[in-house]
Design a binder for these strands. Structure first.
Length: 562
RNA sequence: GGGCGAGUGGCUUAGUCAGGAUAGAGCGUCAGCCUCCUAAGCUGAUGGUCGGGGGUUCAAAUCCCCCCUCGCCCGCCA
């Protein structure tokens, strides 16, 4: 399989070449023709100025000159001047060729690549359950991961476990000094959050506790066995809770990488040694880098004056390790990490290491303000999943009362998951959002369930169609619109990977569902006969398969009935 | 104060990087469509100074400058 939908690329390049030769211009301004044509050139505008002739006339002349080009004839490209626009139309519809691929399993997969890619996402601090902000990271990360795999990359997904931060020291202090009993049925991560919140309250009341927390951090960095064990125990328990939540979101990691391992294996010490040799190094009790030359106002601290390392040191060690083991590094991080991310990249470059590409997403807040684990102000992902699934179950029961309960439960689980994942992935990452229960519980238009429904509808038609002969002709406006959208799928996968923007896939899938629903409304499939029926059933098959591949790449179940 | 991001109909949002032909969509409101392939659907109507002001260009939501509003960041926290 090729990386780009070739029939289109070939035509694009042919038109480009012919236009360049004809106009003697390098930039022939070839753009998408939208509803007017497959491709359009606006070159007549700039030529008008040079040749002092109206653009309309130039377009006419140019069209006349190149319309009989033998390559155009061969590929079935026609040209028409409409006002100043040069419109190119493909008559040997390349959509047809792609339709043959589109009915096969795996449509949209690109050719295998040898590069090893590591993608880090979620990496939330293990001091409380994942909330609706964290899962924006998980869902963007997991969708990217699925798209990279579909695009043929050899990918490993990692979770970086911050197991030696101050928050964890506070958690451990809480377990040591406060009532730490786990409530009946209380999930591990929720338990940790409760103790963490209580410990923070104590800390506010009595700032003297800070010294005890600092002491714990020194002990853990020094490798004190009992302290390390305590940290590991609570962090592990919290991660167990995370894994359950993530599994319910259809998100999985290949490897959990523990921050403290980079202390234990000496990597952090080694990276500090290398940093000390940099000309930007500033050692005045603490160890830091002066990156002002690159526009960073504040110094980048690597090691405290008490000799303990800060997060940055371990993160540098982690990324150096990634650079040694992978060809390409991608991190999904919240917008709050923009500055330190840039400092990290800058430092890695100074060290001559491969730097990560960082995908940043803006914050999710609640109507009453920003979320805070410490203050206990958050909507947990578990609660969200429970509510949405409940709502989905009610909806399925209302629509399909004849189904038995376990079937309805299974559909509700898939529908709920679709609603959550789609709701989050559909908006572009640079947009900050406010969590809204009403929107989260909406299963109509522009939602995951809407796309699932279009897929289920296609499945139903195919089931009823039984026998048909594959036919790749396209006649009506609606058939063509659907085929055109199907044909865009491989290019969409490629675009998501190259731009690291998974919401493009979400938009694509919704538009495919839209065009299919319109087609469904206007063009009878099962009630048509002969060749018309064959070509429409074939088209439905292609839609069903493309929707399935799209949904699965979005981490959403392509269910056949709902 | 400085840096980064966002501002598109009442609400949510695509398009902005690679400027082009009437700025797409959903929710809401209003009017229609289930003896007909799944109505989680479809059709139509309503609704837009693309935050404001300059500039570049034949052409600006899109590029440049200034300003306003909101979010995030500016720790020997992570």
């Amino acid at each position: 399989m090729e990386d780009v939908d070739n029939p289109f690329k070939k035509r694009f390049q042919t038109i480009l070449k012919v236009l360049q030769e004809s106009t003697k211009e390098n930039d022939v301004q070839l753009i998408d023709g939208g509803e007017h044509a497959n491709l359009t050139s606006t070159i007549a505008f700039s030529l008008a100025k040079k040749e002092k002739k109206p653009p309309g006339t130039i377009a006419q002349e140019c069209a006349k000159e190149i319309s009989s080009n033998p390559e155009f004839k061969l590929l079935g490209i026609t040209i028409e001047a409409k006002g100043p626009y040069l419109n190119f139309q493909y008559n040997n519809i390349p959509e047809k060729d792609l339709l043959k691929d589109a009915i096969k399993p795996g449509y949209g997969s690109l050719k295998k690549k040898s590069a090893r890619v590591v993608l880090e996402h979620t990496s939330a601090n293990p001091n409380g359950p994942l909330h609706v902000g964290h899962i924006r990271n998980s869902i963007i990360g997991d969708t990217l991961a699925r798209t990279f795999r579909k695009a043929g990359y050899n990918l490993e997904v990692q979770y970086y476990v911050n197991d030696m931060g101050r928050q964890i020291a506070i958690v451990v202090w809480g377990f040591d000094n406060l009532d730490n009993t786990q409530l009946k049925g209380e999930k591990e991560d929720t338990h940790i959050a409760r103790i963490y919140i209580a410990a923070n309250r104590e800390l506010e009341k009595n700032p003297g506790i800070t010294q005890q927390v600092d002491h714990l951090m020194q002990l853990v960095e020094g490798g004190d066995i009992t302290t390390v064990k305590k940290f590991r125990k609570e962090v592990s328990r919290c991660l167990d809770g995370f894994v359950v939540t993530l599994k319910n979101l259809n998100v999985a990691h290949d490897r959990f990488v523990w921050e403290s391992d980079f202390i234990r294996n000496g990597d952090t010490k080694r990276i500090i040694g290398r940093i000390k040799k940099l000309p930007q190094e500033k050692e005045e009790g603490s160890l830091a880098l002066d990156l002002s030359e690159w526009g960073f106002e504040n110094k980048y601290v690597i090691r405290r004056s008490d000799g303990t390392t800060v997060y940055a040191a371990r993160d540098l060690a982690y990324h150096t390790w990634k650079a040694a083991n992978f060809d390409r590094i991608i991190d999904v991080l919240g917008a709050d990490h923009k500055l330190i991310g840039a400092q990290l990249i800058c430092t890695l470059k100074l060290l001559g290491e491969k730097a990560p590409q960082i995908v940043h997403f803006e914050f999710v807040s609640l109507p009453e303000g920003s979320m805070s684990t410490r203050a206990g102000k958050f909507v947990s992902a578990d609660d969200l999943i429970a509510e949405v699934t409940k709502r989905a179950f009610d909806e399925v029961t209302k629509r399909r009362p004849e189904l038995d309960e376990s079937t309805r439960r299974a559909i509700a689980k898939s529908v709920g998951l679709a609603a959550i994942r789609y709701d989050i992935v559909k908006v572009s990452p640079e947009k900050s959002t406010v969590f809204d229960w009403k929107e989260a519980l909406d299963f109509e238009r522009q939602s995951g369930p809407y796309i699932q429904y279009a897929h289920a509808r296609a499945c139903s038609i195919l089931e009823k169609a039984e026998k048909f002969t594959e036919c790749f002709d396209l006649e009506t406006e609606y058939e063509l619109a659907v085929a055109k959208q199907i044909a865009k799928f491989p290019a969409t996968i490629e675009k998501v990977v190259s731009e690291l923007r998974p919401h493009l896939l979400a938009i694509y899938a919704r538009e495919l569902a839209d065009t299919f629903n319109t087609f469904y409304h206007f063009e009878p499939v099962l009630k048509s006969e002969g060749a018309i029926r064959d070509r429409r059933v074939t088209l439905v098959k292609a839609v069903q398969n493309t929707l399935k591949e799209s949904l699965e790449t979005l981490g959403i179940d392509a269910i056949s009935t709902m």
